[in-house]
């Protein structure tokens, strides 16, 4: 579907994207995950056609689109700010992309109506963007981008402008929408929970490079580098015999084991409880069920983990 070969993009002297190779399959939700400045948005903008890479190629269905203008590409974008045209109604925004297609007026109106129904904005067609809630605006942005029937939908931090509760609901809706349409979604986020929740595969980016590609569980359980391990979820990390050993806090069991330390603090998070322990290995974190009792601060506890919980990472 999308094939990216040795892509590099420089701004001034800074390499924003540094030799990325990537393949995204038909019909998958692919997430570019990374901290701000890692190049994920630049990579997305290269796919959208807003930036032209200095090196490398982008192929869409086997066709080289590297230098193709954005208005000629069969991809559409949901912008982070949504970028809804404030002077056009909801219907006007959705119809905008159809005006340059060879389409009868009736077909165009039918497509607009279909899109409004798809994102459940019935009755709001005549509203201006300023008269919509944040969630509604996001749906208009999605409907507008989908109206041209793109082969790929690009989403730049599509949930960042929503509040926490709405964000969770919208995640589910995005997954359902993608399943119904069957096209590829490529989205960019710095939020690892979000990436985990909706992606088929994740590409973790650091310093303009993709450091690991894999399914969410694979990224979480078998991080390829220390950066990935620390960026995705909580992790305990200590050195042993020249290698870094990583253990997820939920694999750490209290009460028995080869290690011991002093409890510094217990943080109650509802369903989970985090126990911070100072031990010869360094500061360790254990995550236990919230219903279990917590040890006293200052108490000495023994702890350990099963052998398969350990993962050795390169330096």
């Amino acid at each position: 579907m999308i094939r990216i070969e040795r892509l590099a993009k420089r701004f001034g002297g800074v390499l924003a994207v540094d030799g990325v190779d990537l393949e995204i399959a038909q019909g998958e939700i692919f997430c570019l995950l990374g901290p701000s400045g890692c190049g994920k948005t630049t990579l997305l903008r290269c796919i959208g056609g807003f930036e032209v890479p200095d090196e490398g190629r982008i192929l869409l269905d086997g066709q080289d689109v590297t230098g193709l203008a954005p208005w000629l590409r069969p991809v559409n974008t949901v912008f982070q700010s949504y970028a809804l045209f404030p002077h056009l109604s909801v219907a006007g925004n959705i119809a905008f992309g159809l005006e340059t297609l060879a389409m009868s007026k009736a077909d165009r109106e039918a497509r607009v109506a279909e899109m409004i129904a798809l994102v459940r904005l019935d009755g709001l067609a005549a509203r201006r963007p300023s008269q919509l809630s944040g969630g509604q605006r996001q749906r208009v942005a999605i409907a507008r981008a989908l109206a041209r029937h793109p082969k790929v939908l690009l989403l730049d931090e599509p949930l960042s402008a929503l509040d926490a509760k709405l964000r969770e609901e919208t995640r589910l809706e995005l997954v359902e929408l993608q399943a119904r349409l069957g096209i590829s979604f490529v989205f960019v986020t710095h939020d690892q929970d979000e990436a985990m929740a909706i992606s088929d595969r994740i590409g973790v980016m650091q310093g303009g490079r993709i450091v690991q590609v894999g399914a969410p569980a694979e990224i979480y359980d078998r991080p390829a580098t220390r950066f990935v391990a620390e960026f995705v979820g909580r992790i305990n990390m200590f050195e042993r015999g020249g290698a870094w050993i990583a253990v997820r806090p939920e694999r750490v069991a209290l009460g028995a084991g080869p290690h011991s330390g002093i409890v510094r603090e217990c943080a109650f998070l509802g369903e989970r409880r985090l126990i911070f322990i100072d031990s010869p290995l360094g500061r360790m974190t254990a995550s236990v069920a919230g219903s279990d009792g917590a040890p006293e601060n200052g108490a000495t506890v023994a702890f350990g983990w099963p052998a398969d919980a350990e993962r050795a990472l390169p330096q």
């Binding site: 993009k9 420089r10 930036e51 032209v52 200095d54 230098g67 203008a69």
Partner: peptide, 8 residues
């Protein structure tokens, strides 16, 4: 840093 012909 390269620029797309269409931007030019």
């Amino acid at each position: 840093m390269s620029e797309a012909p269409w931007i030019r």
